[in-house]
Amino acid sequence: KKTCTFCKKEIWNTKDSVVAQTGSGGSFHEFCTSVCLSLYEAQQQ
């Protein structure tokens, strides 16, 4: 099972999830929504 990098909820429907390359290492992270992605990126600043 996949979990959201930001909120840690399980991702049930992968077509609704967002995968983004974030951080200095350029690793890929999966998020349940684009909202979680935005919040995660804001936290990394």
Rank of each mutant, 00 (worst) to 15 (best):
K8E: 07
C4D: 01
Q21V: 04
D16P: 15
I11W: 05
S27I: 09
F28H: 15
C36A: 01
T5D: 06
Q45A: 14
D16S: 13
W12T: 12
K1I: 13
C32S: 01
E41D: 09
Q45H: 14
K9N: 04
V19Y: 11
F28T: 15
Q45K: 15
T22M: 11
F6K: 12
I11Y: 09
I11S: 06
T22F: 03
C4I: 00
T33H: 06
Q44I: 07
S24C: 06
C32G: 01
A42I: 03
V19L: 06
N13P: 03
K2R: 05
G25C: 02
L39W: 04
N13I: 00
E10M: 09
L39M: 07
F28P: 15
Q21D: 10
E10L: 07
S38L: 02
F31V: 02
T5K: 06
G23I: 03
K2Q: 12
I11M: 11
F6V: 07
I11A: 06
E10Y: 03
S34K: 12
V18Q: 11
N13F: 06
S24Y: 03
E10P: 09
V18M: 11
T22Q: 09
C32D: 05
K2G: 05
F6C: 03
A20N: 02
C36E: 05
E10D: 15
N13H: 08
F31Q: 03
Y40N: 11
V35I: 04
Q45C: 10
F31H: 03
K2D: 10
C4L: 00
A20V: 09
K15T: 14
T22N: 08
E41T: 06
F28Y: 06
T3N: 12
S38Y: 02
N13L: 05
C36H: 03
A42Y: 03
C7P: 01
T3D: 14
S38V: 03
K1R: 03
S17T: 01
S34N: 15
V18F: 08
V19A: 12
Q21T: 10
V35A: 13
G23A: 09
V19G: 14
T14R: 12
V18S: 13
E41F: 01
Q45N: 05
Q21F: 04
Q43S: 09
N13T: 15
E10S: 09
V19Q: 15
C32V: 00
T33D: 11
H29Q: 14
T3K: 04
K9W: 01
K15P: 12
S17Y: 01
E10I: 08
V35M: 08
S27R: 11
